[in-house]
């Protein structure tokens, strides 16, 4: 894993935070806004830095701030299937389709989520993996087990490191300055990622702000992916030609007679 946490703390735009009129404001910035996929890419980490701003009227109560940083990857339609026994064989039976679901998600917080806000509030603001919202269409019969499918989905996603929840993932480096590290697994797809930071105190959300970054293939990886998509037949012909050349070369190299 590559940690690219440059000394960006100094350049956090504190000015914009100070301009806000009342109550707390939140400003965040990322260590970088583009992650480039090269041939040696094995995932990355992005540092999130943030500043909590207060106007003069707000009493300084920094110790009890809670922060939740949520990074969501590109969205996809995802089908979850369940195997059931039919006589001696196990076959896929029920399936539920989750629409518009983030492929990756990282929920980082300064404290356990349940201590930050109650579940109703967390549901309303989609804070935490367990509040993942996705419209889904279940076949009749499976509908009643929606919760079970949702749990299975999050379990599978967590097992493959695509979903992460870290209740110690946000740390304060000064009274009102915090940082978090968003992990990006190697299997995270290219696309647009959004990062949302929410400030809580005493179970109430005080402020929220968003930023984003992009994961893109570069160089050879970008070229191959584009050719495969746009000129499929030519790409296939090139792969076939390469196969013939490889096969022929091997006989030349190993020729004994």
């Amino acid at each position: 894993m590559r940690i690219v946490a440059s000394a960006l703390v100094l350049s956090i735009p504190i000015l914009t935070a100070a301009e806000a009129a009342r109550g707390e404001t939140l400003t965040v910035t990322l260590s970088h806004h583009q992650v480039r996929i090269t041939s040696t890419y094995t995932g990355a980490e992005l540092a999130v830095f943030g500043v909590i701003g207060r106007d003069g009227a707000t009493a300084p109560r920094s110790g009890d701030y809670d922060l939740v940083v949520t990074a969501r990857g590109p969205r996809a339609n995802t089908v979850l299937r369940e195997k059931r026994p039919f006589g001696p064989v196990w076959l896929n039976d029920a399936q539920v389709k989750f629409y518009d679901l983030p492929v990756t998600m990282a929920v980082l917080s300064s404290r356990p989520l349940d201590e930050i806000a109650d579940v109703d509030l967390r549901r309303r603001y989609a804070v935490g993996l367990d509040t993942t919202r996705a419209s889904n269409i279940a076949p009749p019969g499976a509908a009643v087990r929606e919760e079970e499918f949702r749990e299975a989905l999050i379990r599978l996603k967590t097992q493959s490191n695509l979903y992460v929840q870290d209740e110690r993932g946000v740390s304060f480096i000064a009274e009102n300055v915090f940082r978090a590290t968003v992990p990006l697994p190697a299997t995270a797809p290219p696309g647009a990622y959004e990062v949302e930071a929410a400030l809580f105190r005493g179970g109430v959300r005080l402020a929220v702000t968003q930023t984003s970054f992009e994961v893109t293939k570069t160089g050879l990886e970008q070229f191959l992916a584009r050719e495969a998509r746009e000129r499929g037949l030519l790409y296939g012909a090139a792969a076939s030609a390469l196969a013939l050349v490889f096969g022929w070369l091997a006989t030349v190299v190993f020729r004994r007679d």
């Binding site: 996809a76 339609n77 995802t78 979850l80 299937r81 369940e82 195997k83 196990w90 989905l153």
Partner: peptide
Amino acid sequence: DMVVEPREPFSIMLSEVL
């Protein structure tokens, strides 16, 4: 593959990126 009880009955089948 078909007869042994799967350890995880659920599987993610398809994921079309939007």
